[in-house]
Amino acid sequence: KKSYVLIKVKNPKTKETHTIVVPEENLEEVLKALASQPNVKVVDIERFP
């Protein structure tokens, strides 16, 4: 059974918020990819039960 993680990201320029759902096993690479985006800020990470 896969567990999923909900990542909320915000664009500081446009103030838009997006929610991305990723499998927990991919969380680290997704966070690394997001960290390299200049106008993306991770605001929240939630685990799915």
Rank of each mutant, 00 (worst) to 15 (best):
T17E: 09
T14P: 01
V40G: 02
Q37P: 02
S3A: 12
T17N: 05
Q37V: 09
E46N: 07
I45G: 01
K13W: 09
I20Y: 12
V9I: 06
R47C: 06
K1E: 14
T19I: 08
S36H: 08
V40A: 08
I45N: 01
L34N: 00
K1H: 14
P38A: 10
V21E: 05
K32H: 08
P49H: 08
E25I: 06
K15G: 13
L6H: 10
L6E: 04
Q37I: 11
K2F: 13
V40R: 05
T14V: 03
N11R: 04
V30G: 01
K13D: 12
H18C: 12
T19K: 06
E28W: 07
I45Y: 04
S36Y: 06
K41A: 10
A35L: 13
A35C: 05
H18I: 13
K32L: 11
N11W: 04
V30H: 03
P23T: 06
V21L: 13
K13F: 14
E25M: 06
T14E: 04
L27H: 03
V40E: 03
K32V: 07
E46W: 08
P23A: 12
V9R: 00
P12R: 15
L34A: 01
I7C: 01
L31G: 00
E29V: 13
K13E: 14
L27T: 02
V30W: 12
V43I: 10
V30F: 11
V43T: 07
K2T: 13
V43G: 02
K1Q: 11
V42Q: 02
F48D: 04
E29M: 12
K41T: 13
A35Q: 09
K32W: 06
N26P: 00
P12N: 15
K13H: 13
L34M: 05
I7Q: 00
Q37Y: 08
E28C: 10
V9N: 00
V22Y: 02
V22C: 03
R47H: 08
V40H: 06
K41W: 08
K10L: 15
Y4N: 03
V42L: 04
Y4M: 06
S3V: 11
K2A: 12
K32Y: 06
P23D: 11
Y4T: 03
V5C: 07
L31T: 01
R47I: 10
E28M: 11
E25W: 06
P23N: 10
N26S: 10
H18N: 05
A33K: 11
E46I: 13
V43R: 01
V9C: 07
P38E: 10
R47L: 09
N39T: 07
E29Y: 10
E29K: 11
N39W: 07
K13N: 13
P38K: 05
P38M: 06
L27R: 02
V42W: 02
E16V: 10
L27D: 00
K32T: 08
A35F: 07
P23H: 09
L34S: 00
I20D: 00
E29R: 14
I7V: 10
N39S: 07
P38F: 04
V21C: 07
N39H: 10
K41L: 14
L34Y: 04
H18W: 15
K41G: 03
S36R: 10
N39P: 02
K41Y: 07
E25R: 05
E16Y: 05
L27C: 03
E16A: 04
I45F: 04
P49C: 14
E16S: 03
P12S: 15
A35P: 01
P12E: 15
E46Y: 14
V42D: 01
V9P: 00
P38Y: 03
N39F: 07
P23V: 10
H18Y: 15
K15R: 04
H18R: 14
K1A: 11
V21H: 04
L27W: 03
E25Q: 08
T19P: 02
N39D: 13
P49L: 10
T14Y: 04
N39Y: 07
D44T: 13
E16T: 05
A33V: 10
E24H: 05
V5Q: 01
I20F: 15
S3H: 13
K2Y: 09
L27A: 04
V9W: 15
T19C: 14
S36Q: 13
L31D: 00
K41D: 13
F48L: 14
I7E: 00
V5M: 08
N11K: 04
K32N: 09
E24R: 06
K8R: 11
Y4H: 04
K8N: 04
V22R: 01
I7W: 00
S3K: 11
S3T: 14
T14W: 03
S3D: 11
V43F: 03
S36K: 08
P49S: 05
K1Y: 14
V40S: 07
E28K: 09
T17C: 08
K10W: 15
E24N: 04
N26A: 10
E16C: 15
D44W: 13
K2L: 11
L27G: 01
Y4A: 02
E29A: 13
K13G: 12
N11M: 04
T17G: 04
I45R: 01
V5D: 00
E46M: 12
A33G: 08
E16K: 13
N39C: 07
K10P: 00
I7N: 00
V42F: 02
I7G: 00
N26Q: 08
K41N: 09
V21I: 12
V21Y: 11
L31R: 01
N11P: 01
P12L: 15
E46K: 12
D44I: 10
V22S: 02
H18D: 04
Q37E: 06
V22E: 01
E24V: 07
Y4D: 02
D44V: 11
K15L: 11
K15F: 11
L6A: 13
I7H: 00
K15N: 14
V40P: 01
N26H: 09
P38Q: 08
R47W: 13
K32F: 05
Q37H: 07
P23G: 06
E25C: 04
E29L: 14
F48Y: 13
K1F: 13
L31N: 00
E28Q: 12
D44N: 11
A33D: 07
P49V: 11
L34H: 01
L6D: 01
K41H: 14
H18G: 05
K2E: 12
K32G: 04
N11Y: 07
N39M: 04
Y4I: 03
L6P: 00
N26V: 10
V9Q: 00
V9A: 02
I45M: 06
H18M: 13
S36I: 07
T14F: 04
T19W: 08
N11C: 05
A35I: 06
E46F: 13
R47M: 08
R47A: 10
F48G: 05
V9D: 00
V42S: 01
V21A: 04
E28R: 10
V5K: 01
E16R: 11
I20N: 01
K1R: 08
F48E: 05
L6C: 05
P23S: 09
R47G: 03
V9T: 08
T19V: 10
D44C: 12
I45H: 02
K8W: 12
V40K: 04
V9E: 00
E25L: 04
